[in-house]
Amino acid sequence: MAAGGDHGSPDSYRSPLASRYASPEMCFVFSDRYKFRTWRQLWLWLAEAEQTLGLPITDEQIQEMKSNLENIDFKMAAEEEKRLRHDVMAHVHTFGHCCPKAAGIIHLGATSCYVGDNTDLIILRNALDLLLPKLARVISRLADFAKERASLPTLGFTHFQPAQLTTVGKRCCLWIQDLCMDLQNLKRVRDDLRFRGVKGTTGTQASFLQLFEGDDHKVEQLDKMVTEKAGFKRAFIITGQTYTRKVDIEVLSVLASLGASVHKICTDIRLLANLKEMEEPFEKQQIGSSAMPYKRNPMRSERCCSLARHLMTLVMDPLQTASVQWFERTLDDSANRRICLAEAFLTADTILNTLQNISEGLVVYPKVIERRIRQELPFMATENIIMAMVKAGGSRQDCHEKIRVLSQQAASVVKQEGGDNDLIERIQVDAYFSPIHSQLDHLLDPSSFTGRASQQVQRFLEEEVYPLLKPYESVMKVKAELCL
């Protein structure tokens, strides 16, 4: 049975990233139509530049190519590739079939990587351009969430054990800070992308030097003109047959890092959902379990974690691919890159769409948070109580021993009897502590235990987050809708 299948058929496997999760716009960027249309555009740009620099290419040939950029006979191309065992030459023939007058000058002087690699770089750039505003929107939604809850005390956790208090907004800023680093890295790697350009079979530009009869300047002009037509500021000066596969490492490393950030955020949300302090959106008709109707599973956060793990592992592909590119190139890269580049971007696209949807509907339960604080705060307040007693004339050592005994009794009630923490009640009825009984409410005010959390939130948002989001103001209103 021949390899390949009808990918629109229910009898043929289709990647869930495309069929179930990723956005239509990201799927289109990695589609065959987008790819092969870009090949034709690159052939047109090459012909236009070659004509401008004096090669015998007519206006009629150029116009014929322009008129057929979208006229792609995919069936013919597939048949040609089956016959020739070469995808680029299959599309040269297919393009030439609908451009008979231009057929002889299509791909003039070029090698397969002229269309293959340059198209990949265009796709990487455009895919990054799709991700950047999506990530900015996630940051914006979380920034709104953090600002609104900047002063809401909550129990902090280290080692997932109760620690000092923080605020809900401050905790959210930990998430935002990681995503801001990801946004900066995505922008950097996007701006650092260079075009492969017009380089020939081993990167020496020998074929173009021959076409222009040894004119170095025209060869350099050709490279520059096509690079500018493709919208790049610069091209690699040095290439082998391909652009260095280190570029793929750079791009997928940034995406993998984004995956790590999203995994951490969504894990926190899942843990908070278990504590009943916070939940992701839950639709009115949504079913959490087929057997347990009360369940409210954090399905979206779980999906993000599941896909983020996949995204983090994909960076190993370009690392290994770059390491086995012998001399000017081997074909070890080809099949692998067809999979890992598309999957990385479709996965990143999915987790950003999902995280935006989550961040637009996060639900906080202040009463649950308050109750958990009441359970733990008495123990945390013991040092403040000791200091207040010393100020009232008591002995630190005597007070410490009193607190120690009462704390152990209260802990026994919590752990052995399943009761509430009654340390404060014990202190309130103990005559030894009568000098500070009137101060206990103040000493137990949760806001006095959150330090500068709310001020940190305000400063972080104003100095770091809002300036970073400013270039994306025009796209901030787009909502994230999930079908599944």
Rank of each mutant, 00 (worst) to 15 (best):
K134L: 12
G394I: 06
K367H: 08
G361P: 06
D332G: 01
N421F: 04
L53E: 05
L44R: 07
N357C: 11
T158V: 01
M380H: 03
K82P: 14
D11H: 15
H437S: 10
L165S: 04
F195N: 03
G96C: 05
H442Q: 14
A2N: 15
S31T: 10
K367E: 07
H437L: 06
M299H: 08
K75G: 10
M26H: 03
A78S: 13
G4L: 14
E64T: 12
W175E: 05
N384D: 08
Q455L: 11
L443F: 06
L128V: 10
P56F: 07
A256W: 00
Q320K: 04
H442W: 12
L222H: 00
G156I: 04
V478T: 14
L461M: 11
H217S: 14
E79K: 12
M312L: 10
Q397V: 06
E70N: 12
S301R: 00
D268I: 00
G418Q: 02
K479D: 15
E302R: 01
R337A: 02
K479G: 15
V363C: 05
H7D: 08
E50I: 06
L423C: 02
E370F: 13
S112V: 00
H86P: 00
L124W: 12
D430E: 13
L179S: 06
A431E: 13
Q375H: 06
S207D: 00
Q41Y: 12
G361F: 07
D6T: 13
A150L: 05
A344C: 03
Y114C: 08
D332W: 02
D182Q: 02
S289G: 01
I265T: 11
S359A: 08
S407G: 10
A388I: 04
P446R: 03
Q397W: 01
R270I: 03
W43R: 00
R83P: 09
P24S: 13
R270P: 05
Q177M: 13
E283Y: 05
F157P: 00
F195W: 08
A143L: 05
V324L: 10
I265K: 07
E279C: 08
V324F: 07
G169T: 03
D398F: 09
D248A: 00
H159R: 01
L377M: 02
V478W: 15
L69S: 08
F30I: 07
G203E: 00
M316W: 13
A49Q: 03
A163M: 00
R14Y: 15
I237Q: 08
Q61P: 03
F460V: 06
L142R: 02
G203D: 00
K199C: 07
T58D: 09
G418I: 02
R452M: 15
Y21F: 13
A392K: 12
K199G: 09
D11Q: 13
G214A: 13
H97Q: 12
H400A: 04
R296L: 08
N336G: 13
T166W: 01
E360A: 15
R33N: 04
Q205I: 04
D6M: 14
L258F: 14
P471D: 13
D422W: 10
V315T: 13
L423D: 04
N353C: 13
T227F: 10
V390W: 04
H97M: 12
L484I: 09
R329F: 05
C266I: 02
P435F: 05
S261W: 02
L311R: 01
D6V: 11
T244E: 00
D191T: 12
V88M: 12
R337M: 03
H159G: 02
E370R: 13
L135A: 08
L179R: 01
V88Q: 04
V247D: 07
V413G: 08
W175Y: 07
I106H: 04
T119D: 06
S67V: 12
L183S: 09
L484V: 08
D192T: 13
G104E: 06
I249R: 01
E463I: 08
A344Y: 03
F157G: 04
L341S: 13
V168W: 06
S306P: 02
V413Q: 13
D59W: 08
G116F: 02
F195C: 14
A235T: 13
I237T: 08
L186P: 03
I62G: 02
G419K: 13
D317R: 02
L406G: 06
E280R: 00
D87W: 04
Q408C: 13
S23M: 08
F327Q: 09
L174Y: 08
S151E: 08
A230N: 04
L84I: 06
S31Y: 01
D223A: 06
S9V: 12
I238R: 01
T354V: 13
G231I: 01
A136V: 15
P153N: 04
R85Y: 10
H217R: 12
L84R: 11
Y365V: 07
P56Q: 07
Y466V: 12
R194A: 14
E228N: 08
L258A: 13
V324C: 12
Q456F: 04
G5T: 14
L443W: 02
E464Q: 08
D398N: 13
E60F: 10
K477F: 14
M76G: 13
V457R: 03
D182M: 00
S434G: 12
H437A: 11
M26G: 01
G4F: 15
L44A: 12
E401A: 15
V254N: 12
T267S: 11
D129K: 15
A90G: 14
N357K: 05
R20F: 00
D445T: 13
K264L: 04
V198M: 14
R234P: 03
A235K: 07
L155A: 01
A453G: 11
P293W: 02
V478K: 15
E463M: 15
L108K: 01
P133V: 14
Y21D: 00
A78C: 13
N421L: 06
L461A: 02
S474T: 15
L183H: 15
A150T: 11
G116T: 15
D317P: 06
Q221C: 13
R396N: 00
G240C: 06
E228F: 07
I249S: 06
T94C: 11
A291D: 02
A47P: 04
F327A: 12
K75W: 13
H7C: 10
L314V: 09
Q177S: 15
